[in-house]
């Protein structure tokens, strides 16, 4: 099996996996970073969202070959700063229910707000519309977005 060198959460990790292995399963099974979740496997739901060079991407439809050499951040990387305003807002508003999709929600939002500090609520919500939550915590995600976008200004 080929060896790949990955830059995950600021650390270089060497992994030996087949070249068609989705990044999601490398993170989860090989590196033990299980905060990135499997749900649809087809890039539909967003539970597996990570940052590739700062952009929100769905790790279930990226192969290891696609990301070798890229800067990868997972929810564990973002959580190295537990005081990140998104985490604080998520806890304050008690957004999470089962919690399974929340890392994907948070990673998507963090990338959007980081990429464009002047992003509008509407733009954020249009982008977040494809991150699914079966508990339908959407009412509170909506409130959290409003609060964070307002505070970001």
């Amino acid at each position: 099996m080929p060896e790949y060198s990955l830059n995950v959460n600021g650390k270089i990790r060497k992994v030996n996996v087949e070249e068609d292995t989705p990044l999601l399963w490398v993170l989860r099974d090989t590196l033990g970073l299980t905060g990135t979740k499997y749900s649809c496997g087809e890039g539909i739901c967003g539970s597996c969202t990570v940052h590739i060079n700062g952009k929100a991407e769905r790790s279930c439809v990226l192969t290891i070959k696609d990301v070798a050499g890229d800067k990868i951040t997972t929810i564990e990387g973002l959580a190295e700063n537990p005081d990140h305003p998104i985490f604080k807002t998520w806890i304050d508003l008690e957004v999470s229910q089962c919690g399974y999709c929340q890392p994907g929600q948070i990673m998507t939002l963090a990338a959007l707000m980081n990429e464009n500090p002047n992003i509008t609520k509407k733009e954020v919500k249009e982008n977040m519309n494809t991150v699914l939550c079966r508990c339908a915590t959407y009412a509170r995600i909506d409130k959290a977005i409003d609060k964070l976008v307002e505070e970001g200004k």
Partner: peptide, 18 residues
């Protein structure tokens, strides 16, 4: 506040699949 929320949103909590 929920006892399980922080670990879940930090990606630390272990669900069945994890």
């Amino acid at each position: 506040h929920r006892t399980d929320t922080p670990d879940k949103i930090y990606g630390k909590a272990k669900f069945g699949i994890d």
